[in-house]
Amino acid sequence: MDQLLVLRDAAIAMALGGVIGFERELKNRPAGFRTHMLVAGAAALLIGVGQLVVDDPRLHGSGGNRLTIDPLRLVEAVVAGVAFIGAGTIFGRRGSEVVVGITTAAAILMVAVIGVMVGFRYHLLAGASTALTLVVLTVIAWAEKRMSLNQGK
């Protein structure tokens, strides 16, 4: 039963990550729908499996010692893994001061954190964070673009 809850949480995380990834896909960014889904799902699974391992009686010591973990270590593992993916989405052009992909890398980090929230079963916080991320990626980006067009007139 606990494994089904972890699987459910991974599906929720993937759906939330997919919403953000879909926005990136529409803008033809380096990482899109599938990447964001997989990152969010993997983060939720890592947290969920960590919790299952702690509760697994097969892994307790012979004297009844309970296995313990620091939940922040699981979060650190997610962030370290996402750092490699995020770095791969950032591209700089030689001889140019233009750097491309930073927003997508930040979105990948955000979906990883959303996956962590879902893994810890903070579903409301994860949903609200997804909505806030979409506001940043769409509404604020639209406003910035509009302001730059008005300044060019």
Rank of each mutant, 00 (worst) to 15 (best):
Q3P: 14
Q3R: 14
L4I: 09
L4K: 14
V6G: 03
D9A: 00
A10W: 06
A10E: 11
A10I: 05
A11Q: 09
A11G: 07
I12V: 04
A13V: 02
A13I: 11
A13G: 06
L16I: 03
L16D: 00
G17P: 14
G17R: 05
G18K: 07
I20D: 03
G21C: 08
G21P: 09
G21N: 14
F22C: 13
E23S: 11
R24K: 05
R24T: 06
R24M: 10
E25Y: 08
N28W: 14
N28V: 13
R29K: 05
R29M: 04
R29G: 01
A31C: 05
T35L: 01
T35E: 00
H36G: 02
M37K: 12
L38Y: 01
V39R: 00
G41Y: 03
A42Q: 06
A43T: 03
A43W: 00
L45P: 07
L45K: 01
I47T: 12
G48E: 01
G50R: 08
V53F: 08
D56N: 10
P57V: 08
R58F: 09
L59E: 07
L59Q: 04
G61T: 03
G61D: 00
G61W: 11
S62H: 13
G64H: 14
G64W: 12
N65H: 15
N65W: 15
R66V: 15
T68E: 09
I69K: 10
L72T: 11
L72S: 12
R73T: 01
R73C: 03
L74P: 06
V75W: 05
E76Y: 07
A77S: 06
A77L: 13
V78C: 11
V78D: 05
G81A: 04
G81I: 06
G81Y: 03
V82M: 03
I85P: 08
I85Y: 01
G86E: 01
I90H: 00
I90Y: 02
G92W: 12
G92M: 07
G92A: 15
G92S: 13
R93I: 11
G95K: 02
G95S: 09
S96Y: 11
S96R: 10
E97W: 12
V100E: 11
G101W: 05
I102L: 08
I102A: 11
T103G: 06
T104W: 08
A105V: 04
A106S: 12
A107S: 02
I108Y: 00
L109P: 15
M110R: 10
V111H: 00
I114H: 02
I114V: 12
G115V: 07
M117Y: 05
M117P: 08
V118R: 04
R121D: 08
R121L: 12
R121Q: 13
Y122V: 05
H123R: 12
H123W: 15
L125P: 15
A126P: 03
G127P: 02
A128E: 09
T130F: 02
A131K: 05
A131P: 10
A131F: 01
L134I: 01
V135E: 01
V136K: 07
V136E: 03
L137N: 04
L137P: 02
V139N: 07
I140M: 07
I140N: 00
W142Q: 14
R146I: 07
R146Y: 05
R146L: 06
L149N: 13
L149T: 15
N150E: 10
G152N: 15
K153R: 15
K153L: 15
K153S: 14
K153H: 14
